[in-house]
Structures are given as C-alpha cells and as structure tokens.
Simulated assay, not measured.
Amino acid sequence: MSRITMKDVARQAGVSQPTVSHVINGTASISGNVTRKVNKAIEQLGYLPNAAARSLKKNTSNIVGLIVPSVDMRFYGELVKVIERILRREGYITFLCNTFYNGHLEKEYVETLIQNNVIGVISGSDIVDEKSYSLLINNHISTVLLDTQKKLEGMFSVQVDNEQIARLAVSHLYDTGARKISYCSEPIATSMLQTRYECFTHAMKEFGLTLHKNQCFFAQNQCNNHSKIEMGYDVAANVLLQDDIDAVFASSDEFAYGIISRFKEHEIDIPGQIQIMGCDNDPFSNLITPSLTTLQQPISLMAEIGVNMLLRLINDQSLNERSKCLEPSIIIRESTKNISTRKN
C-alpha cells in the first residue's frame, strides 16, 4: 500500500494541494474554516509530512546527530539517556549512531547526518577519523565533543579532569598502604584512555612509586567483539602471574568487574590480598561484592553542559569558553582498605 500523500489530504479536504502545504508550513494566511478542514483530513488519513523534504526546503531540521562508540557500554548509555532527554525537552529529535570505534562506519554516519540536514552533532567520545570532523566543520554543522582529550581546530568540548582522576586513585591506594599498583585497561581506543594512562604514570612518580611494564596490562580485543567485563576477566590472569601486586586501578568499573570475577575464582581476598579500584561510579558498583571503590565522573553534568553548548551554537549565541573541564570525586567502598588499617 502506498504512503498517504499531501495530494490525498487535498482530495479529502476538498482543497488544492498548495493550500494543504500552506496550512502545514504556515506559509500563507488561510481561513479558519479551510484550516480546520485540512487538519481534520490529516487526522482522518493519518498523514505525516515528509520531514526530509521539509528540511531540504528549509535547509534545516530539528534533528541532532548523537555519535557514541556503543550504548552497550554503560558510560555511553547513561550519556545518551541524558542527552536525549534534554534535547527532546527543547524540541529536538536525536539520530543515534553507534560507531564501535570504526572510522569507516563513523564517516558513513557523518555523511548521512549531513545529507539529512542535521542541525547539530554531539559526539560522546573522540571523532575517530579527523576527516569526519572536517566534513562537519566544512558543512557548518555545529559540533560538540564529550569525553575527549583531542585538540582539533575550532573544537568545542567537555571532559573530566583525567589528571585529577589519576591523582585521586594513586593517592587513596597509597594511603591504604599499596606500593605496587597495577594499571589495567581496555584497548587504548580513545584520547581519553591514553591520557588517563599517561596521567596515572605521572601520579605514580609523584608518590615515588615505580611503574614497571609488568604492572600495566591492556586488553587486546576490540570493544565491539568483547564486553569490558570479559576483557577485564582476561586481563586479570596476567595480574595473577605477578606475585607482589597489592592493588589494581582499572580504567572503568565494568573492566574492574571482570577482574574481581577472576580473582574470586582464585579465592583472592579483596581487599586483603589485592585492592581494586574502578572509574565511573557505574550503578552496579555499589551492588557487587565487595562493593567497588571508584572515581565518580559527573556524566549527567557533562551531558547537560555539552547540550547547552550545542544549543548556543545552533542559535548563534556566543560561548565564553570552548572547552570545559569537570572535576571527578572519589567514592570509597569495600574493595579497598580503610586508611586506618594500612600497611606500615
């Protein structure tokens, strides 16, 4: 069955097709009686205007592109939920794009967004291929990047202070008596993950601690093939081969869950033998056993500031700063020792 068209509405209402168009788009003065006939016909037929055609005619739309690696990762799932809620309240619809860190797929999405006249784009992480970023800028698409450490020309961004994340983690573990701290991470697929690792190495030096290669472990599998929990579980096997590691800092809570699972299988006492600390304050971090000490990232605030930035750009309003850096906070739970029981 063919789709209901404006021509069908005109026939049902007993008016011309241009009259229907004027009623829908508000482009001419139409009498109240005719307007009521057209709206009644639209309701009876269930007619929906062609949004693509309307946006092409007006050279704009109410669609915002939302690019993330994968909503399966709870950090990005939470980010998407907050962004969608705010945009919907402001009258915008989101076009969600999961790229799985694939630059080719990302470029296809960006081209599609531009072809559909999106009014703006928010990326929840790096733009993997800088050519995709150039496409957005060259086509004058307002763009804001979240959770990135990249510095691109004309970029607007919101991120969390990874230097502070690393310092809080190492400081807390040091205060509990840990001296040989392992760094465990998912694949370094983003500038944020790279920066977090670099900041961790600097924080270790600040506290006079040595970080050897056999203390740092990175998952090799791509994130679209394995969950973070599975990757953490696999990496934990390498930690267990080292006899003297007394604490682990995981790049995310989900990654830490996998490590905890492997340690439990080997009857490792957490935190008695090895302490574990994550990052994100995932909703499940307080529900697992032992509950996970973690660094809380203000995900909702990051999303709110990013959307507000984008809306100002869309409305040609000035911004006082191109980049906003947010502060993390530490949440101490059962997976690390109390400072009062630290080693001598």
Rank of each mutant, 00 (worst) to 15 (best):
H172Y: 13
V71E: 01
M231Q: 14
A28N: 10
I30E: 03
Q12M: 14
V71A: 11
A51S: 14
G91S: 05
Q273R: 13
I122E: 06
K58Y: 10
S123R: 04
Y133N: 06
T5S: 15
Q17D: 01
C199L: 04
A303K: 05
Q296E: 14
I42C: 04
N338V: 00
L45H: 06
T5W: 07
S191F: 07
F218K: 04
V68Y: 05
N344I: 05
S132R: 05
G272W: 03
I83N: 06
F200A: 05
L152V: 08
Q115I: 00
F249T: 08
A237Y: 09
D161S: 13
L146V: 13
L310E: 07
E84L: 00
D269P: 03
I141K: 10
D8R: 01
Y197M: 13
Y233S: 03
R312L: 04
I259L: 15
V110T: 12
P298T: 08
P328C: 00
E106G: 08
E186Q: 12
E130I: 14
H202F: 00
Y133S: 06
G103M: 09
S323A: 11
F95C: 02
R88P: 00
G26A: 01
N224H: 15
N281Q: 12
K343L: 14
S182T: 09
T60D: 02
V64C: 01
I268R: 07
L105F: 03
Q222V: 11
S227H: 02
E84P: 12
V20G: 03
S132G: 14
I268K: 11
V128N: 10
C325V: 15
A51R: 13
K107H: 09
S61L: 03
Q215D: 03
R89S: 12
